Simulated assay, not measured.
Amino acid sequence: MSVSEPCVPAEAVAAARAASERSDRLVGTALALFAVAIWGGWIVSTRHAVAGHLTPSAVGWLRFVVPALVLAPWWLKIGLWPRGRVVPFLFCFMGSGAIFFLVVANAMRFVPAADVGPLLPGTMPLIVAVISVLALKERLGWVRAAGFVCIALGVVTLGGRGLLNSADGAWRGHLLLLTGASLWAGYTLAFRRTGLDAKELVGLIGLWSAIILTPVGLPGVFTALREGYGAEVLQLLLVQGIGSGVVALVAFGMAIEKLGSSRAAAFTGLVPALAAGLAVPLLDEHPDMAAVIGIVATGFGVVLASGALVPARRG
């Protein structure tokens, strides 16, 4: 005679599911905020580095060799290539690996750090939202749609000023930054389709990026060391390699797992404000009224677009 399993009330199941979703949203929000805080510093650090004594390829090598080594126990479990998920992995590699870094680092040779925030992490969530709606049939709802409109307003206010008043040649940097934002959007959308967790994916991208950049990047690192810039190389290993290369990407990957692509992407709209704030003491750049308006609009838009004010909905 079999003993029947106790019947769990539907209300209890619904309550447990809602509690789990709330927990995921809180954890995902904390991880996303942690990642974008690091990326705010990354913009200032990269701009300083490529305008200084290291080439973009040398900075990129320092950026990727650390996650390749630190996360080796994870990517070694799956091998050198994620079998059966090649296309999503290529999108992720293009959007956060060596190619993305070289595009953005070269852009920073033409434009100041103040232009990077609105044109790179500022536009990325908008691209993700458009693709999510048009290609993936995601329904944003009017609250989140209003948030993306606010982010767009912040991007236009912050970036438009730089575009209108740009010096000769700055258009190259702006074009490269928009290209980088599109690549990064591809990474954000493809992440969950790789079937890999954040540490496996970040480690594998770091491995292939370090391999690609070694012939052109490693000689530049040796040159910097030989010329007495060892302290700068060490600083880049910490900020670029550990901070941006491992901690931020793993945290953002986990945020995508918890929140979904478009919700996690919305938080990158805060990076322009963070970068502008850090640029004051580190680069002696002070935001004007246009920057303040753009920062406020972007921050408010992130709150709406992230879904903080609407019930959680995965995807």
Rank of each mutant, 00 (worst) to 15 (best):
L236N: 14
A181I: 08
V8E: 00
L33K: 10
A14D: 10
A190H: 02
L236Q: 13
S244I: 13
T46E: 01
R47A: 03
E227V: 07
R144M: 14
I242A: 07
W171L: 13
L274A: 05
G241F: 06
V13W: 02
E285R: 06
S244H: 12
A198F: 00
L189N: 04
V133H: 15
W61D: 03
G122R: 07
V70N: 06
V156H: 13
A308N: 08
V292H: 07
F148C: 11
A37N: 02
E232F: 12
K77H: 09
L283G: 11
A231Q: 11
L238C: 05
P287L: 11
G195W: 08
Y229N: 14
I256V: 07
V27D: 05
E200M: 10
I127V: 15
T223M: 10
A185E: 02
V87D: 13
R144Q: 15
I211L: 03
A146C: 14
G173F: 00
G241V: 06
S57P: 00
L158C: 05
G228H: 06
A98M: 01
G220E: 06
R17H: 15
W75C: 02
A308W: 12
N106V: 14
F267N: 00
M254C: 02
G253M: 01
V233G: 07
E232P: 10
S96E: 01
P219V: 06
T268C: 02
I212K: 00
G84V: 09
G269Y: 00
L274T: 03
R144F: 15
R226W: 11
F300T: 14
A49N: 04
G159I: 12
L54D: 01
L282E: 05
I293E: 10
A10Y: 03
P311T: 08
P272V: 03
L90R: 05
G147L: 12
V66A: 00
P287C: 10
V202G: 03
G52D: 05
A113L: 13
V130Y: 14
P73A: 05
A167G: 15
G220N: 05
G162I: 09
E232C: 10
G97C: 08
V156I: 15
F34H: 01
L80A: 14
L234Q: 10
A19V: 02
M124A: 15
P311S: 11
G315M: 06
